[in-house]
Measured scan of single mutants.
Amino acid sequence: NTKMVRFKKGDSVGLRLAGGNDVGIFVAGIQEGTSAEQEGLQEGDQILKVNTQDFRGLVREDAVLYLLEIPKGEMVTILAQSRADVYRDILACGR
């Protein structure tokens, strides 16, 4: 149940992230009207890879910085997997 989305970065990627470290990086929110939303990313999706950067094992701050450093107008390719069950557990633990 993995999906790959590809879009051109606007002012931002339009994602709020949660998790990090051993639990993985998850989409915690999506800005309305962004390409990330239009391409089908959803809250609870685990981000496995962005462009050439493996997101598994990253701390959340490093994942956020990586997304911020992608220049506006560059193509962004995100490999994600729907993991809403794991995401709910992360929220319940306050991570």
Rank of each mutant, 00 (worst) to 15 (best):
Q53I: 08
L79T: 14
K3L: 01
I78V: 08
G10D: 10
L79A: 04
L79G: 03
A18N: 08
N21R: 15
S82F: 02
A36M: 08
G57R: 08
E74R: 04
V50G: 03
G10T: 09
L15N: 14
G14K: 04
I70E: 03
S35L: 12
R95A: 15
L17R: 03
E39G: 15
A36T: 03
A80F: 14
S82D: 10
T77W: 04
N21T: 14
A28L: 00
L67T: 05
I47S: 04
K8S: 06
V5K: 07
K72T: 08
G73K: 04
V27I: 12
E39A: 15
L17S: 04
N51H: 02
D11Y: 04
E32W: 02
G33Q: 04
V86F: 08
D22H: 01
D22P: 09
E43L: 11
D22Y: 09
A92C: 13
V13F: 09
T77K: 02
G94P: 12
I30L: 09
N1R: 05
D11I: 05
M4L: 14
R83C: 08
Y66V: 06
A36F: 15
A63D: 01
T34A: 11
E61M: 05
G14R: 02
T2Q: 10
Q31W: 07
E61P: 02
Q31H: 09
T52A: 12
N51L: 00
G20N: 13
L65W: 07
G20K: 05
N21A: 15
M75F: 08
V13K: 05
V64S: 12
I78K: 07
L41Q: 04
R60H: 13
L17T: 00
Y87H: 11
A18T: 12
D11S: 07
V13L: 15
I78R: 00
Q38C: 11
V76D: 04
E32V: 08
K49D: 06
N1G: 06
F26S: 02
G33P: 03
T2N: 11
T77H: 09
K3S: 00
T77L: 03
Q31A: 12
R6V: 10
V13D: 10
K3G: 03
D89Q: 12
T34S: 15
S82E: 13
F26K: 07
E43S: 05
A84E: 13
V23S: 10
F7G: 00
A84M: 15
L79E: 13
V59K: 15
M75D: 12
V76E: 01
E61R: 08
E43A: 11
F26D: 00
Y66L: 03
F26V: 03
E69Y: 10
G19I: 05
T34E: 07
Q46I: 12
M4H: 08
Q38T: 11
V13C: 12
Q53D: 01
N51A: 05
G29S: 12
S82R: 11
P71T: 02
R83L: 03
D62M: 12
G24D: 06
K49P: 00
A63F: 06
V5T: 00
E61T: 07
G44L: 03
R56C: 11
L91F: 13
F55V: 07
I47L: 07
V59P: 15
T34W: 08
K9I: 03
E69N: 15
D11C: 06
R6L: 04
Y87E: 11
A18D: 05
L68S: 15
G19V: 01
E37Q: 12
F26N: 06
V76A: 06
A28V: 12
I70R: 01
D54K: 00
D22G: 10
R60G: 04
I90N: 09
C93H: 13
K8E: 08
M4I: 15
K3M: 06
R88V: 06
V23L: 11
R16G: 03
R60T: 14
K72P: 11
Q42M: 13
F7R: 00
L67C: 04
K8I: 14
V86K: 11
G40L: 05
N51W: 00
G24R: 02
D85S: 11
L91D: 10
K8M: 13
R56W: 00
V50C: 03
Y66A: 09
T2K: 13
G20R: 03
A80T: 07
V23W: 06
A63I: 06
Y87A: 10
T2R: 06
S35T: 14
Y66W: 03
G73E: 03
T2P: 02
Q81T: 09
V50M: 06
Y87C: 10
V27S: 03
V5N: 04
N1A: 03
L91S: 12
Q31M: 12
